[in-house]
Structures are given as C-alpha cells and as structure tokens.
Design a binder for these strands. Structure first.
Lengths: 199, 199
DNA sequence: CCTTCCTTATGACATCTTGTCGCTTCCTAA
DNA sequence: TTAGGAAGCGACAAGATGTCATAAGGAAGG
C-alpha cells in the first residue's frame, strides 16, 4: 500500500505521479518498468518515491486497485443490463477492456495489469472482498439459464469463462489478434462452452 | 538461439552451464534470474556467457525448446494411449506436468516456462512447426467423439482445453492449489466442457 | 618447428538500477 | 517565535548488464 504521505499529497502532485506510473507501466512488463524513469517523468526526487511507495510492486498495486474497482463496477453493470446472462457479460467485459478501459488506462497498462491478475489468479468474482463494494456478483447471475447440477457448479463456470475471456483479451493486447478477430473468437468459444464439446 | 560456440563446447562444460541455467531460472521469474548468479554457479567468466548467448532471453530459449519437445512427445503419446480422446489427454498432460516433468525440470522452472508459454500463447498443437517432429497432433484426435459443427471447431476446442489445463496447472505450480485439488478441479471443468453450460 | 588464422576464454569497465540515509525545508500548533 | 513532525532531496553503496581489448588454444600448411 502506498504510504499515508502519498495520499496526503496535493492533488496536482499525486496526479503527476499517477500519470508517470501509468506512463512507465504501460511499456513492457512490470519488471521492465524503471523507477528512475518514473521519477524523471514525474519530476520528483528519488527519495520521495521511496517515501510514497515501499517499492515498485507497491506502486503498481495502486493502479491495480483502481483497475479492479472499475472492472468490478463494469461487471456489476453488465450483469444488470443482461439480466444476469453470464455469456453476454463476458462479451461486454471483453468490449470494455479492449475499448473503453483502454481510454482510461492505455492498452499497455491494461495488458500488464491483466497479466498480473492472471499470474496471481485474481478473479473479480472471487476477490470482491478486496473491493469496497461488498455485495456478491454471483447473486446477480441468472441461474435458471444454466445447466447447474449443484450450486457449486457456478463456481467452475465462472472459472472457465474468466480463463477464456482473459486468454483472448491477452492475445488482443499482445497484438496477436485484432480486436475484431478476438471478439469473433470469443463469441465462438462462448458458444462452445454453452453447447458442450461432447457428441 | 545459443551460438554455435555453445554447441561446440565439450559436453562436460555445456552440461555444467545447462545445470546453472536450470538452477537459476528455477527460482523466481525469468526477470529475476541473474546472469551473475549463472556464471558464478557454472564457473565461467562473464564474457563467455555472452559468447554463448545473446542475452538472458536467449539462454532461456534453450530450456524452453527442450521442455516443448518433451511436452510434445508426451502429448503425442497420450493421444495414442487414449485413442485420440482429447479430454483424457488433457488430464494426462496435467499429471505429467505436475509429476514427471517436475522430476526433469524442477517445479520452479516448469512454472516459469509454462508462464512464458502462456504469455506468448505458445501452444504445442499450433506450434508443432517449431519442433523437429512435423506430423500434426490434431490428426491423432478422434473427431467422432466430438460435437463438431465444422472441421474448424476443433481449433477452438483445443484453444479452450489448453487454456483451462494451463490455468489449473499454473495454480498448482503457484501453490494456490494442491496437486490433488487441482486434478479434481480440472476433471470437473472438463466435464463441464463436455456437457455444456446452457440448460 | 614456426607462423598464420580462426575459435574460444577472460575479466576490467562503462553504464544503469535499486534502495538507503542523513540532511534540509516546510508547515502548523502552541 | 519556536518546536517538532511531515515532506523534500540527492549523493551514494551495492549490484546488474552488456561490451571490448586482449590473451590463449589449436589445427593446417609451409
């Protein structure tokens, strides 16, 4: 967690630092991001950085938190709009991440954050307790549409859909797929998930 | 690619370097691996390392190639053993990676390599051309068991199963799941893939 | 046996990073 | 006015990467 000092900063300065973080973490991986670049860009001395953040990882947590909050909110909103349809929500999240989110975060940053979430298997559904908002997203899912043998199955459904959606999104972010091709692919894969693979 | 010089090396020396690579790349991420540690462990001077490898990334490619070759071979073998059953093969690959592969590679290294494959979306099915063996694994899959609308669907099936299997394996490697729980989870998730999610 | 030429070995170095620490400056409350 | 905590600051130690000039080996030919 960033220090109290950081949050006490004047808005102008905090925003300048935030911009620098986004700027630097947008290129390459987190490992490649250089603190030296960040402080040059933000025009703050080295010592200050370490007064605000424990280390590079700490700095990035700040951005991840923001991203997750927005992501969570988008998910909640999508589930409401689609009357709890988990497949349509997956597509909406894909669209959000590859379009709108990019406006707020820059595609490179979104990629890195998603990579980090995936590495740590952080799932907005499961990690809602990390977020201010306490109500569970799973409650918003319409179970009537789903082929659930037990209530517990929903957990696996979410795992699978999350993995697939992330996978495609990452390919788009890595520029192995165009946004359009990625979407078609995700649509196709969701159809397969709906209908099953076995004859 | 490692240099010709590296492959010309006396076996004893090459193996010493290889061991050093495995040793260092087994702890933490690739980014964290230190060339200084590698050369100390292998007892070679700094200059030699850079004569053998372009850089750290190049050194690691050597290990990845080895891993992929073994992985490919295991996949081929599993498909034969199961008469082309893609679901059972996924489980066999899971078992292989979490048990046998670890004996050859060390769990830390296996984790890092898989992470790298995932990051670059390298799929043994799709990237067979990188391997010496030229015959396609997809030919070994028994399509009669599968709910394929078009021949192209097989491609998506493989993508999905690969993503899910990798996802669970990574969780086990990261010690968020035990090997046993991971296996149960994968079995469950494969069942869902077979039967579909939609009522 | 010596010279030539190509391959391999070697470690000092320039350059860049990260994280620390002691000192200075600012601000507020008494 | 002043005391004390909060914030600012940059030199520096420690350690990493990649380069380069030079040395050493060894095979082939005169």
């Amino acid at each position: 967690m960033p220090s109290k000092t950081f949050f006490n900063l004047k808005e102008e300065k905090r925003e300048r630092i935030e911009k620098a973080l986004i700027h630097e973490f947008s290129k390459g991986s987190f490992e490649q991001a250089s603190i030296t670049n960040i402080i040059n860009y933000a025009k703050i001395p080295r010592g200050s950085f370490y007064q605000y953040f424990e280390d590079k990882k700490d700095a990035v947590k700040y951005l991840i938190e923001k991203f997750m909050l927005m992501d969570y909110e988008k998910m909640r909103q999508s589930l409401e709009e689609t009357q709890g349809n988990i497949f349509e929500t997956a597509l909406k999240i894909y669209d959000y991440r590859t379009n709108e989110a990019v406006l707020n975060f820059d595609i490179g940053l979104a990629k890195n954050i998603l990579e980090e979430l995936r590495k740590n298997n952080i799932n907005v559904f499961e990690n809602k307790e990390n977020l201010k908002n306490k109500d569970s997203l799973t409650k918003l899912i319409d179970k009537a549409q789903l082929n659930l043998e037990t209530d517990n199955d929903l957990y696996y459904f979410i795992r699978i859909i999350t993995a697939i959606t992330r996978s495609v999104t990452m390919e788009v972010f890595s520029e192995r797929l165009s946004k359009e091709d990625g979407r078609k692919m995700l649509e196709k894969e969701l159809e397969i998930l709906k209908n099953g693979m076995k004859k």
